[in-house]
């Protein structure tokens, strides 16, 4: 088999020219010295950190895993969900620079972001549509793990962590919906709160907790905002860590249509 020719990773101009006989009398040109020490500096910084942290081992443990035969595009849905979450986190942080969670200012500040802030409409749009994208992706990912039987032993715990992530993502959707504070946000939140209130025995108190009182009041919005931007994203980030640790630890499942290969020895013995 002919060896594949890999593309040249360093442009020719940057490659040190081989020295011609008699050139430099064994000494290197300044340019070569600069290139070489630049490369060495990078390596020694990485070495310096690795010597003190042993991070390269952890990186190798997570990145260079054995992957079963038949792994396909459906296995990227989990990472896609994670990137949707990261996109929400980043755009959310920047929206928070202009958003004002007070009942008299929230609507106005959202309008300001959309109509006046440079790229405001774009960043808000990313956050708003990204929320839907994340919901769609998380369900597709859940469907993938379900139909591939990836929830079975020994991955039950990862399924459970996934369910918690799903619920937390839904809490994000619910609490985020109030923040623009227009008529739709407001009445949708009233309805959602009353749905929470219909749980027997504890429901009425849960509704009071969410509203911070018996009526939708001055602090309800702030409460939803803090749940939306601090409490739940933190929990999601931590649980994604657990989720991925378990994926790296247990490995991913092979697709159900891939049969285990019989060892060579058994095959010959059967004949």
């Amino acid at each position: 088999m002919p060896k594949l020719k890999l593309p040249n990773p360093i442009p020719d101009q940057l490659r040190p020219r081989p020295q011609r006989p008699g050139e430099g009398n064994g000494r290197k040109s300044t340019k070569d010295v600069v290139i070489e020490s630049g490369r060495d500096a990078g390596i020694s910084v990485v070495d310096w950190v690795d010597e003190r942290t042993s991070l390269s081992g952890a990186a190798r443990w997570t990145m260079f895993r054995k992957v079963p035969k038949g792994t396909n595009w459906f296995y990227t849905l989990g990472s896609a969900t994670m990137f949707a979450f990261l996109s929400q986190a980043v755009t959310g942080v920047f929206l928070a620079m202009y958003y004002d969670p007070s009942p008299t200012r929230a609507y106005e500040s959202t309008r300001h972001i959309t109509n006046e802030v440079f790229l405001g409409e774009f960043v808000r749009g990313m956050h708003k549509w990204g929320a839907t994208v994340m919901m769609v992706l998380i369900f597709l990912h859940m469907g993938r793990t379900f139909f591939f039987g990836a929830y079975k032993y020994p991955r039950e715990l990862n399924w459970v962590v996934g369910v918690v992530l799903l619920v937390l993502t839904m809490i994000m959707s619910l609490t985020g919906y109030l923040l623009p504070f227009d008529q739709r946000s407001f009445w949708a939140t009233i309805v959602a709160d009353n749905i929470n209130g219909t749980g027997p025995f504890l429901g009425p108190y849960l509704a009071d907790f969410l509203r911070a009182g018996p009526e939708f009041g001055a602090t309800t919005l702030a409460r939803f905002y803090s749940i939306h931007m601090l409490l739940v994203p933190g929990a999601i980030a931590a649980l994604i860590g657990v989720h991925l640790y378990l994926v790296a630890k247990l490995g991913t499942t092979a697709p159900p249509w891939v049969k285990a290969e019989e060892p060579e020895q058994l095959r010959t013995e059967k004949v």
């Binding site: 009942p103 008299t104 407001f186 009182g213 009526e215 939708f216 009041g217 001055a218 309800t220």
Partner: peptide, 10 residues
């Protein structure tokens, strides 16, 4: 007004 300090919402 059923909630003070909440503007129109109250």
């Amino acid at each position: 007004t059923v909630e003070s300090g909440a503007g129109e919402v109250g």
